[in-house]
């Protein structure tokens, strides 16, 4: 993992999550903005997947369990897609809230992935 990219990703996911939660609680149905924010989070996750596969070849290896790392990453890749699919099926304000929840969950998961990659213990 590349540290600045990871923090960028966590930052975007938090922003997108707060934005969607806010708009959802104010009664907005999923729109281009909230779906776009979720799509951006997903895009960064795909970027993270590429980085994580490539990084070991540049000497940047994970210090923790790769199995656990990739379980997190694969789960994370599923979450925004599932939330977005839900938002397409059911166009209600709660779908926007769910988009927000999904983005915040991604922020937490990426942070955990960073922990697995860099520091051991816990």
């Amino acid at each position: 993992m590349i540290e600045w990219f990871t923090w960028l990703q966590v930052g975007v996911a938090v922003l997108a999550g707060v934005l969607c939660l806010f708009l959802g609680l104010f009664g907005r149905v999923p729109n281009d903005l909230t779906m776009g924010a979720t799509a951006l989070v997903e895009l960064l996750l795909v970027g993270q997947l590429v980085v994580s596969i490539a990084a070991p070849f540049a000497g940047n290896t994970a210090s923790g369990s790769l199995l656990e790392f990739y379980t997190y990453l694969v789960s994370a890749l599923i979450v925004p897609v599932a939330a977005a699919a839900w938002a397409l099926i059911e166009r209600s304000r709660w779908s926007t809230v769910i988009l927000g929840g999904a983005c915040l969950a991604i922020a937490v998961m990426v942070y955990r992935m960073f922990q697995i990659w860099t520091v051991q213990g816990l």
Partner: peptide, 8 residues
Amino acid sequence: GVGRLLIA
């Protein structure tokens, strides 16, 4: 509505 959130 809120039930959907619970399911999520």
